[in-house]
Protein backbone atom coordinates (compact mmCIF):
# COMPACT_ATOMS: atom_id res chain seq x y z
CA UNK A 1 0.00 0.00 0.00
CA UNK A 2 3.05 2.23 0.25
CA UNK A 3 1.43 4.20 3.08
CA UNK A 4 -1.08 6.07 0.97
CA UNK A 5 -2.62 7.58 4.10
CA UNK A 6 0.52 9.72 4.39
CA UNK A 7 1.70 10.06 0.80
CA UNK A 8 -1.48 10.76 -1.15
CA UNK A 9 -3.88 13.67 -0.80
CA UNK A 10 -6.96 11.43 -0.80
CA UNK A 11 -5.32 9.12 1.77
CA UNK A 12 -4.58 12.05 4.07
CA UNK A 13 -8.16 13.21 3.70
CA UNK A 14 -9.35 9.69 4.55
CA UNK A 15 -7.53 9.96 7.89
CA UNK A 16 -9.32 13.26 8.59
CA UNK A 17 -12.60 11.68 7.61
CA UNK A 18 -12.27 8.49 9.70
CA UNK A 19 -10.97 10.25 12.82
CA UNK A 20 -13.69 12.88 12.36
CA UNK A 21 -16.43 10.23 12.20
CA UNK A 22 -14.99 8.54 15.34
CA UNK A 23 -15.08 11.88 17.15
CA UNK A 24 -18.68 12.47 16.03
CA UNK A 25 -19.62 9.04 17.43
CA UNK A 26 -17.88 9.95 20.69
CA UNK A 27 -19.80 13.24 20.86
CA UNK A 28 -23.05 11.32 20.33
CA UNK A 29 -22.23 9.06 23.28
CA UNK A 30 -21.07 11.96 25.46
CA UNK A 31 -24.19 13.97 24.72
CA UNK A 32 -26.52 11.03 25.48
CA UNK A 33 -24.65 10.44 28.74
CA UNK A 34 -25.03 14.10 29.75
CA UNK A 35 -28.79 13.97 29.28
CA UNK A 36 -28.89 11.49 32.16
CA UNK A 37 -27.74 14.33 34.44
CA UNK A 38 -30.96 16.18 33.59
CA UNK A 39 -33.18 13.22 34.45
CA UNK A 40 -31.34 11.81 37.45
CA UNK A 41 -28.10 13.19 38.96
CA UNK A 42 -27.76 9.90 40.84
CA UNK A 43 -27.94 7.89 37.64
CA UNK A 44 -25.39 10.25 36.10
CA UNK A 45 -22.98 9.59 38.97
CA UNK A 46 -23.34 5.86 38.35
CA UNK A 47 -22.20 6.48 34.75
CA UNK A 48 -19.28 8.55 36.09
CA UNK A 49 -18.27 5.77 38.42
CA UNK A 50 -18.42 3.27 35.56
CA UNK A 51 -16.18 5.56 33.47
CA UNK A 52 -13.64 6.27 36.23
CA UNK A 53 -10.08 5.02 36.17
CA UNK A 54 -11.07 1.46 35.14
CA UNK A 55 -8.98 -0.32 32.57
CA UNK A 56 -11.66 -0.26 29.85
CA UNK A 57 -12.40 3.43 30.38
CA UNK A 58 -8.69 4.22 30.28
CA UNK A 59 -8.18 2.25 27.06
CA UNK A 60 -11.12 4.11 25.51
CA UNK A 61 -9.67 7.42 26.72
CA UNK A 62 -6.33 6.64 25.09
CA UNK A 63 -7.99 5.82 21.77
CA UNK A 64 -10.10 8.95 22.03
CA UNK A 65 -7.05 11.09 22.75
CA UNK A 66 -5.28 9.50 19.76
CA UNK A 67 -8.30 10.33 17.60
CA UNK A 68 -8.13 13.98 18.65
CA UNK A 69 -4.36 14.21 18.25
CA UNK A 70 -4.30 12.61 14.78
CA UNK A 71 -7.24 14.74 13.61
CA UNK A 72 -5.48 17.92 14.79
CA UNK A 73 -2.01 16.97 13.54
CA UNK A 74 -3.39 16.17 10.08
CA UNK A 75 -5.40 19.41 10.11
CA UNK A 76 -2.20 21.42 10.46
CA UNK A 77 -0.34 19.26 7.94
CA UNK A 78 -3.10 19.72 5.34
CA UNK A 79 -3.32 23.43 6.11
CA UNK A 80 0.40 23.94 5.51
CA UNK A 81 0.41 21.87 2.32
CA UNK A 82 -2.62 23.72 0.99
CA UNK A 83 -1.07 27.07 1.82
CA UNK A 84 2.00 26.07 -0.16
CA UNK A 85 -0.15 24.91 -3.10
CA UNK A 86 -1.95 28.25 -3.06
CA UNK A 87 1.36 30.00 -3.84
CA UNK A 88 2.90 33.23 -2.63
CA UNK A 89 0.64 35.67 -4.44
CA UNK A 90 -2.81 36.13 -3.00
CA UNK A 91 -5.67 37.40 -5.15
CA UNK A 92 -6.24 41.14 -4.79
CA UNK A 93 -9.97 40.59 -5.10
CA UNK A 94 -11.65 37.33 -4.21
CA UNK A 95 -15.37 36.75 -3.88
CA UNK A 96 -17.05 33.87 -2.09
CA UNK A 97 -19.63 32.13 -4.31
CA UNK A 98 -22.99 31.74 -2.55
CA UNK A 99 -22.81 27.93 -2.70
CA UNK A 100 -19.72 27.91 -0.49
CA UNK A 101 -20.51 27.55 3.22
CA UNK A 102 -18.67 29.88 5.54
CA UNK A 103 -17.79 26.94 7.83
CA UNK A 104 -16.12 25.00 5.00
CA UNK A 105 -13.55 27.76 4.50
CA UNK A 106 -12.87 28.23 8.21
CA UNK A 107 -12.59 24.65 9.47
CA UNK A 108 -9.11 25.18 10.92
CA UNK A 109 -10.10 28.30 12.87
CA UNK A 110 -13.29 26.62 14.10
CA UNK A 111 -11.22 23.55 15.01
CA UNK A 112 -8.80 25.68 17.05
CA UNK A 113 -11.74 27.23 18.95
CA UNK A 114 -13.12 23.74 19.59
CA UNK A 115 -9.68 22.55 20.77
CA UNK A 116 -9.40 25.51 23.17
CA UNK A 117 -12.87 24.66 24.43
CA UNK A 118 -11.73 21.04 24.85
CA UNK A 119 -8.77 22.13 27.01
CA UNK A 120 -11.08 24.22 29.21
CA UNK A 121 -13.46 21.29 29.44
CA UNK A 122 -10.66 18.86 30.42
CA UNK A 123 -9.58 21.30 33.12
CA UNK A 124 -13.18 21.67 34.41
CA UNK A 125 -14.08 17.99 34.50
CA UNK A 126 -11.53 15.40 33.44
CA UNK A 127 -8.76 16.84 35.66
CA UNK A 128 -11.11 16.67 38.64
CA UNK A 129 -12.54 13.23 37.91
CA UNK A 130 -10.72 10.50 35.99
CA UNK A 131 -7.30 12.11 36.46
CA UNK A 132 -7.73 12.32 40.25
CA UNK A 133 -8.66 8.61 40.41
CA UNK A 134 -5.78 7.70 38.16
CA UNK A 135 -3.28 9.67 40.27
CA UNK A 136 -4.65 8.02 43.39
CA UNK A 137 -4.22 4.56 41.87
CA UNK A 138 -0.67 5.40 40.83
CA UNK A 139 0.08 6.25 44.45
CA UNK A 140 0.23 10.02 44.09
CA UNK A 141 -1.11 11.76 47.15
CA UNK A 142 -4.40 13.49 46.34
CA UNK A 143 -6.50 15.32 48.86
CA UNK A 144 -9.35 13.27 50.27
CA UNK A 145 -12.00 15.82 49.38
CA UNK A 146 -11.05 15.76 45.69
CA UNK A 147 -11.01 11.97 45.69
CA UNK A 148 -14.42 11.64 47.30
CA UNK A 149 -15.88 13.96 44.63
CA UNK A 150 -14.05 12.31 41.71
CA UNK A 151 -17.08 10.27 40.67
CA UNK A 152 -19.64 12.91 41.66
CA UNK A 153 -20.19 14.25 38.14
CA UNK A 154 -23.44 15.95 39.07
CA UNK A 155 -21.59 18.01 41.69
CA UNK A 156 -18.96 19.12 39.16
CA UNK A 157 -21.62 20.09 36.61
CA UNK A 158 -23.47 22.14 39.20
CA UNK A 159 -20.22 23.71 40.47
CA UNK A 160 -19.07 24.69 36.97
CA UNK A 161 -22.31 26.01 35.53
CA UNK A 162 -23.31 28.16 38.48
CA UNK A 163 -20.77 30.59 37.01
CA UNK A 164 -22.36 32.47 34.06
CA UNK A 165 -18.91 33.04 32.51
CA UNK A 166 -18.43 29.29 32.10
CA UNK A 167 -21.93 28.95 30.65
CA UNK A 168 -21.11 31.61 28.04
CA UNK A 169 -17.68 30.10 27.27
CA UNK A 170 -19.26 26.68 26.82
CA UNK A 171 -21.98 28.07 24.55
CA UNK A 172 -19.35 29.80 22.39
CA UNK A 173 -17.38 26.55 22.17
CA UNK A 174 -20.52 24.63 21.27
CA UNK A 175 -21.38 27.22 18.62
CA UNK A 176 -18.00 26.68 16.97
CA UNK A 177 -18.56 22.92 17.25
CA UNK A 178 -21.91 23.28 15.48
CA UNK A 179 -20.34 25.09 12.51
CA UNK A 180 -17.46 22.57 12.45
CA UNK A 181 -19.88 19.62 12.40
CA UNK A 182 -22.28 21.01 9.80
CA UNK A 183 -19.46 20.95 7.26
CA UNK A 184 -17.49 18.06 8.77
CA UNK A 185 -20.34 15.57 8.65
CA UNK A 186 -21.06 15.56 4.91
CA UNK A 187 -17.43 16.33 4.06
CA UNK A 188 -16.33 13.14 5.86
CA UNK A 189 -18.76 11.05 3.83
CA UNK A 190 -17.80 12.80 0.58
CA UNK A 191 -14.13 12.01 1.25
CA UNK A 192 -14.84 8.31 1.79
CA UNK A 193 -16.82 8.38 -1.45
CA UNK A 194 -20.27 7.69 0.05
CA UNK A 195 -21.86 10.44 -1.97
CA UNK A 196 -23.51 11.25 -5.27
CA UNK A 197 -25.80 13.90 -6.71
CA UNK A 198 -28.86 12.50 -4.93
CA UNK A 199 -27.24 11.91 -1.56
CA UNK A 200 -25.39 15.20 -1.44
CA UNK A 201 -28.40 17.20 -0.22
CA UNK A 202 -29.55 14.33 1.99
CA UNK A 203 -26.21 14.08 3.81
CA UNK A 204 -26.08 17.84 4.19
CA UNK A 205 -29.55 17.91 5.71
CA UNK A 206 -28.87 14.90 7.97
CA UNK A 207 -25.56 16.46 9.05
CA UNK A 208 -27.17 19.78 9.97
CA UNK A 209 -29.91 18.06 11.98
CA UNK A 210 -27.37 15.76 13.66
CA UNK A 211 -25.06 18.65 14.60
CA UNK A 212 -28.02 20.61 15.94
CA UNK A 213 -29.20 17.68 18.11
CA UNK A 214 -25.69 17.12 19.51
CA UNK A 215 -25.01 20.78 20.26
CA UNK A 216 -28.50 21.30 21.69
CA UNK A 217 -28.11 18.24 23.94
CA UNK A 218 -24.86 19.61 25.37
CA UNK A 219 -26.13 23.19 25.71
CA UNK A 220 -29.37 22.26 27.48
CA UNK A 221 -27.48 20.58 30.36
CA UNK A 222 -25.28 23.65 30.95
CA UNK A 223 -28.25 26.01 30.75
CA UNK A 224 -30.49 23.83 32.95
CA UNK A 225 -27.85 23.64 35.69
CA UNK A 226 -27.25 27.38 35.49
CA UNK A 227 -30.98 28.11 35.81
CA UNK A 228 -31.18 25.64 38.70
CA UNK A 229 -28.33 27.43 40.51
CA UNK A 230 -30.02 30.80 40.04
CA UNK A 231 -33.50 29.64 41.12
CA UNK A 232 -32.62 27.39 44.04
Amino acid sequence: MNLFIVNSSIGRKLVMSITGICLILFLTFHMSMNLVALISPKGYNLVCEFLGANWYALVATIFLALGFIIHMAYAFLLFLQNKKARGNNAYAVSAKPKEVEWASQNMLVLGIVVAAFLLLHLYNFWAKMQLVELMHQLGVNVCGDALSKSADGAYHIAATFQDPIYVILYLVGLGALWFHLTHGFWSALQTIGFNNQLWFNRWKCIGTIYATIIVFGFAIVAIAYFVKSVCC
Partner: peptide, 10 residues
Amino acid sequence: GFGNCTNTRA
Protein backbone atom coordinates in the same frame (compact mmCIF):
# COMPACT_ATOMS: atom_id res chain seq x y z
CA GLY B 1 2.06 20.37 -5.86
CA PHE B 2 -1.72 20.75 -5.97
CA GLY B 3 -3.40 20.96 -2.55
CA ASN B 4 -5.67 18.63 -0.60
CA CYS B 5 -9.41 18.93 -1.28
CA THR B 6 -11.48 19.99 1.74
CA ASN B 7 -14.86 20.00 0.00
CA THR B 8 -15.55 23.74 0.07
CA ARG B 9 -17.36 23.53 -3.30
CA ALA B 10 -15.81 26.73 -4.66
